[in-house]
Simulated assay, not measured.
Amino acid sequence: MSVTIRAVDRDGLELCTVPLPHGGDPRAVLDHCGYTWLGVKRAWFGEDGRLVIEAVAGDRPTPEPTTGPTSPPVESDEDVRLAPGELPRVRQRIAAYALVETERGVLLTELSEKVRAAAGRWTLPGGGLDEGEDPRTGLIREVWEETGQHVTDIELVDVRTGHWVGVAPDGHVEDFHSVRLVHTARCAEPTDAVVHDLDGSTSAAAWVPRTQLEDYPLAPMLEDTLTTWLSHLPTP
């Protein structure tokens, strides 16, 4: 899969359309083009198979393009070992995640041992999209597989990326670029969380009250963002 960032102004007029390079961060890409990221509107797969992320952007105080990198520095897992002449396998993963809260709490999932660097940490339910799969459709599927919950009223609220070199579950070393589409969603009839995909990346699921979130070791993608994302939700 490949990704395109389409920036529009507050009135929906197109400002620029640029590819997201491997390892790239959408905010840095727009900054490089002379615009400031103000938020995300929607995401869809075009007829050419590329994921289009439409973001609302504004002019920077100094509108000239920047010369800084569009990709943050690449992190590397401690156990990475490459043979002489070996190069990491380049892989990009587009995934959709759901932020869901009911009177039972916030819906979280625990990462299994298949997620080597973050096993035992808790994250939002969600996962990788199939080729050309609508992000909302994929999100509904992933939430059901990982928690047994049915969700509706899905709204895209943020896009986050990660870039690192690490060992994949199959033992290969990967130059991995993660593009995460974060949505809010509604669960009208919450039930006890049950993991249906028993051979996947999720080992457990739970509804966690906000007052108990600090008791759970969070995955890196949530450590600095969960509080911000929760602000998009009303307290049940």
Rank of each mutant, 00 (worst) to 15 (best):
D224H: 14
P73V: 05
G171D: 03
Q92Y: 13
E223N: 07
W164E: 12
K114P: 00
I53L: 02
V208G: 10
V143I: 08
D153P: 03
L99V: 12
E155M: 05
D199M: 06
G85M: 09
P190K: 08
P26F: 14
L99C: 10
C16T: 07
C187K: 06
P209H: 02
A168F: 06
L51V: 08
T228G: 15
H196G: 01
L30N: 04
G24N: 14
H32I: 12
A205M: 13
L20K: 06
T202L: 06
A83E: 09
V115H: 05
P234Q: 11
R186W: 13
T137C: 12
A119M: 01
R104P: 07
T17Y: 08
A185D: 11
D199A: 06
L107G: 04
R89L: 11
A43S: 11
Y216R: 15
C16G: 01
K114Q: 01
G162W: 10
P125L: 10
P69C: 05
W229D: 12
E110Q: 14
W37P: 00
V74Y: 03
T202M: 05
V195F: 06
T235R: 15
G85W: 08
G23C: 09
Y97R: 13
G12A: 13
I53A: 01
T228E: 15
R50E: 14
T67M: 07
L20C: 07
V18K: 00
R60P: 07
W164P: 03
S178L: 06
K114A: 00
P169I: 00
W144Y: 13
W122M: 00
P69I: 05
Q149S: 02
R60A: 11
R104K: 15
K41I: 11
E189N: 09
